[in-house]
C-alpha cells in the first residue's frame, strides 16, 4: 500500500482525509486534531483581519507549513466574482494555488450555485489555480467541472454541517464512473462509518470539518476519522464480497463429529 497516493494537481498525498480548521475551541485544539487526523491538507477561510487589533494570535502560527498543505476556501461567497476575488487573495496569502471553490446558492441549505461555480472554475483554471470545487452529488455537473479543468470534484454527501452522511451513494457511484479526476466527498459526514462508506464506494478522499470539530470529543473523533478513511480505502481496494440472501458456511462440512 506504500504506492497509494491521492494526486491533486501537481501534488501527491498519502492521507486521503482533508480536514477543516473551523469551530474548534482553541487553536491548540485545532493543532492537536490536525495531528491526530493524519491529514496533510487543511482547509482555512479567507477573512478580513481586524485592523483595530493586530495583536491577536493567528491560526497559521499553529499550522506547520512544512507538514500541511493549506487549502483556502471561498466559503460564504454567493457570486462567482466574490469567489474569484477570495481565491486570488487566498493564493496571495497562502502562496499555494490550490483552492476549495465554493459558490453558495442558499444560506439555509448552503447548497452550491452550480452555474456560478462553473463560471468561477473556468476563470480560476485559466489563472493557473488547482481548483477543487464543492458541488452537488450531480454527475452531469461533475462532468462539466472536470471539462472546465477542475483538478477534482467534491460532491457533498449531505448539507454542510448536517452530519446526515452519504445520502445518495448511487449518485456518488455514478460520479465515480463519469469523471476521471479524483472524487472527494465534501460535507455531510457525521461519524466514522459515513467516511468509510464514502471510501468504500471508491471515492479518492473525504473532506470534513464539523464531523470532527463538533464531536463531544473532537480529538478522539479526529483519530476515528483517520482510521475510517484508511479502512474504507483498504476495503475498496480489497474488493468486497457479493451480498447474498442465504448463508454460506465458512467452516468445512467434512470431518464434523458424529
Amino acid at each position: 500500500m506504500s504506492e497509494d497516493y491521492l494526486v491533486l494537481g501537481d501534488k501527491k498525498f498519502k492521507s486521503r482525509l482533508i480536514v477543516g480548521t473551523g469551530k474548534y475551541a482553541s487553536f491548540e485544539e485545532t493543532k492537536q486534531a490536525l495531528e491526530l487526523s493524519g491529514a496533510e491538507i487543511v482547509t482555512v477561510a479567507v477573512r478580513r483581519i481586524n485592523i483595530s487589533d493586530s495583536s491577536k494570535e493567528s491560526l497559521l502560527d499553529y499550522i506547520d507549513r512544512k507538514k500541511y498543505t493549506i487549502l483556502p476556501n471561498t466559503a460564504a461567497c454567493y457570486t462567482a466574482d466574490d469567489a474569484i476575488r477570495t481565491a486570488r487573495l487566498g493564493r496571495e496569502a497562502g502562496l499555494s494555488s490550490m483552492v476549495k471553490l465554493e459558490v453558495i446558492g442558499s444560506e439555509k441549505t448552503l447548497f452550491p450555485d452550480n452555474e456560478a461555480l462553473l463560471e468561477a472554475t473556468k476563470v480560476l483554471v485559466k489563472e493557473g489555480f488547482t481548483v477543487l470545487p464543492y458541488t452537488n452529488d450531480d454527475p452531469i455537473m461533475a462532468k462539466k467541472l472536470e471539462d472546465a479543468g477542475a483538478a477534482a470534484v467534491m460532491p457533498l454527501g449531505a448539507p454542510i454541517g448536517s452530519g446526515l452522511g452519504i445520502r445518495n451513494p448511487y449518485n456518488i457511484r455514478i460520479i465515480l464512473e463519469t469523471v476521471k479526476v479524483p472524487v472527494l466527498v465534501d460535507a455531510g459526514v457525521g461519524t466514522a462509518s459515513d467516511a468509510a462508506i464514502a471510501m468504500e464506494l471508491g471515492c479518492d478522499g473525504v473532506l470534513m470539518n464539523t464531523g470532527i470539530a463538533g464531536a463531544k470529543k473532537p480529538l478522539l473523533m479526529a483519530e476515528a476519522m483517520r482510521y475510517a478513511v484508511h479502512a474504507g480505502r483498504l476495503a475498496y481496494l480489497a474488493g468486497r464480497i457479493q451480498k447474498k440472501l442465504y448463508a454460506t458456511a465458512s467452516s468445512p462440512f467434512d470431518g464434523t463429529i458424529e
Binding site: 480548521t21 477561510a45 479567507v46 477573512r47 483581519i49 496571495e92 454542510i160 460535507a187 473532506l207
Partner: peptide, 26 residues
C-alpha cells in the same frame, strides 16, 4: 496587490482596501 509590490504601490484618496488573513474554516 502582490507582496513584492507593497513598497511601490501608493494609495490615493478614495481607494478601497481589503486586508485579509486566514481563519478557521471548513
Amino acid at each position: 496587490v502582490k507582496k513584492e509590490d507593497h513598497m511601490s504601490v501608493s494609495l490615493k484618496d478614495g481607494d478601497i482596501v481589503e486586508i485579509i488573513h486566514f481563519v478557521g474554516g471548513g
